[in-house]
Nucleic acid binder design. Structure first.
Lengths: 233, 233
DNA sequence: CGACCGATTGAAGGTCGTCAAACTACGTGG
DNA sequence: CCACGTAGTTTGACGACCTTCAATCGGTCG
């Protein structure tokens, strides 16, 4: 798979500073003096759905800030099964664990067409040493990861299949900018909810025939969120 | 419920520095000069099983380092059900999320007889401002939380009830210093694994009659770990 | 057009939840 | 000291839900 390098951000400080999602990203609080510490290029990359940002055994040299699109973090077990443990969206930092000197904890794969900034780990570590302004951002990001994991455990891995699917749809809708939202393949839904693809398919079919879910594209859907939430009670 | 204040650590720097689990705790890397920044007392507390360190709506004024024992982090939902989302053991920091200005994300309750150091949040924040030595510790702790959560999702919330119970027993054994390990109530096992108390009971019974698990006390057991692991394949 | 992949649907069987009863441990009070 | 009540555990029976296996459908790509 080929990766398109759209743009090198480095060399023009203004690029990061003019970033459209500037207030969301890891570097949100940095000052001009901090940017001067950056020596390796930060590049703007685009991935197509199914492409992999990295695999868990790759050399942990980069983290990625999501500009737009959706990423799944996947744990593959030796027997071929896989479990999706987290979804990341706009402004999220992919691969954050390598900033603590760890290997990648998962494989990261694009779901929707994906735009990211690829940041060399060495640069983050350098800035971290000299500037305290990243620390708060880092803690806030870990904190969000932890509360997302709680949600994943309590809502997406507990209770009946129907409830889990509904929770997942609500979660996907909350990750979307638009009215409609990303609808994963039935296999991926299964890997998120610890159910089979057939069960996922049945639940989606049921919700469609009940009129609370409209499937547009193969990977897009819309729903009456109020009505969906009401089904949980 | 009454809380016994065993000891005030503050006032004698040597207390923290002589701590038996010094290399495990949040303050592992602090220097004497850092300890001088501490103005509020750090106290040594003991809790009995079932006692609560804090509830999610308590004022987030303290974090706790576990000296010995086990803590469960619990999410109560409005309908009375509850889900245990994490277990914390020796050296772990309970309530870390409040250091990012958040409320407590869970209720924390003692399982085994518990010894903790109660640390005022204000002190951690003060040290954090002036000293970079906590940052690495904090990141390492968040990192561990995240990988624990991954384990919770992939092993304890996925697959058949029997496999989940076995994984839980192995996990509990790994948290123990001794040969035997803590055996939760069946209800708590259910809340960890998203199964019912009856199913948990049946699985424990089965493992006992198969001779791979020995239940000693009501809340202690031992097992042949190799044999247990073999049952997973 | 035919092959292939994912989604859907059906049927059958197994696992787990639900409801209920019996059992155990433990503490209280007669 | 024993009787009794309570709470948690265990066990059984039954049914619901989900998985498994299989067939069909629909769309895409060569």
């Amino acid at each position: 798979m080929k990766i398109e390098v759209i743009n090198e951000v480095w060399g023009e400080l203004s690029k990061c500073e003019l970033c459209g999602i500037r207030d969301l990203v890891l570097f949100a609080d940095l000052k001009e003096e901090d940017f001067r510490l950056i020596h390796q290029p930060i590049v703007d990359l685009h991935f197509k759905p199914l492409q992999s940002l990295y695999r868990s055994d790759d050399s942990p040299d980069f983290v990625y800030t999501i500009r737009s699109g959706l990423v799944k973090l996947v744990n593959y077990s030796s027997d071929g099964r896989y479990r999706i443990v987290r979804l990341l969206g706009k402004g999220d930092l992919v691969g954050i664990e390598v900033l603590s000197g760890q290997p990648y904890a998962h494989s990261a794969e694009a779901l929707e067409p994906l735009a990211v900034c690829r940041i060399p780990v060495s640069e983050v570590l350098r800035i971290n040493q000299d500037s305290p302004r990243l620390h708060e951002q880092m803690l806030a990001r870990w904190q969000k990861i932890s509360s997302d994991a709680d949600y994943w455990i309590t809502e997406l891995s507990t209770g009946q299949a129907r409830q889990r699917v509904i929770h997942l749809l609500l979660h996907l809708a909350s990750l979307s900018d638009r009215d409609d939202f990303f609808l994963p393949s039935r296999e991926d839904m299964g890997a998120m909810l610890a159910i089979t693809t057939e069960t996922a398919s049945r639940m989606i079919s049921a919700l469609r025939s009940e009129g609370v879910l409209q499937v547009q594209d193969k990977s897009r859907a819309s729903a009456n969120l109020e009505q969906l939430r009401a089904l949980l009670t």
